[in-house]
Amino acid sequence: MIKLELPISNKDLLSLRVGNYVEVSGIIFTLRDKASRWLLEEKIPEKIKQELKNPTIYHCGPIIKKTKDAYKVISAGPTTSERMLPYLSGLNKRFGISLIIGKGGFRNTDIFKKNKMVYLHTLSGCGALLAQKIVKVHYVFKLQEFGMPEAIWKIEVKALPAIVTIDADGNNLHDSIYKQSEKLLKNRK
C-alpha cells in the first residue's frame, strides 16, 4: 500500500503502476459533467484559476449538508468517469490535471500515456464509507448554478482508498479486462 500525499510530485506520479493500492491524503476537487465543460468553455473567474493549479480531481457528485457553521459530507462515492472523456485532454492542458479519481475508468489509454496522467479507481457505490475519509469541506464553487451533485467542491481527504488502474506508461486495467471479456465472449461455445 502506497501513501499518496497531495500535491504529488511528478516523479511519484510517474512511479505509480497499475495494481498499486494507494491511500490518498490532501486537497482534491470534485468535478463532473457540467463543471468539466464549463471549465473549458467559459471565461474562468480568477479565484478558480488560482485554485485549480495541477489539482487532483475526484469524479463525484456528493451529498453534502450545510450545518450551522460548516458543510458536512454525508455520502460521497465516485461517479462513472467515462462521461468526462471529452474534457480530459483539455483539462490537462488548461489546468494541468494529471491525477484523477473515479470509477469505471477509460479505455482510451493514449490520453493518459501522452499527457502522463494517472487514474485511480475507488470504491464504486461506497458513498457512506468514502464520506468518512473526507475530513473537511474547504469551499464550493458554482453551487447555486450547477446544483449539489455538479458543483465543484474543494475537499480534504485522509487515507482515501483506491487502486491504480491506468498509469502514465499506458497500462490500463479497464481496457485489459474489457479485452479479456470480449475474447471470452467471442470464444463462447
Binding site: G77, L123, G127, A128, L129, A131, Q132
Partner: peptide, 24 residues
Amino acid sequence: IFLDLILENIKIAKQNAIPVCQDT
C-alpha cells in the same frame, strides 16, 4: 477485497443512517 469494503460500507450506512451510495 472490494466485496469486503462493500459489506463494510453497507454496515457504516446503516449504523450512521446515511445513504449507502450518494446517488440516491
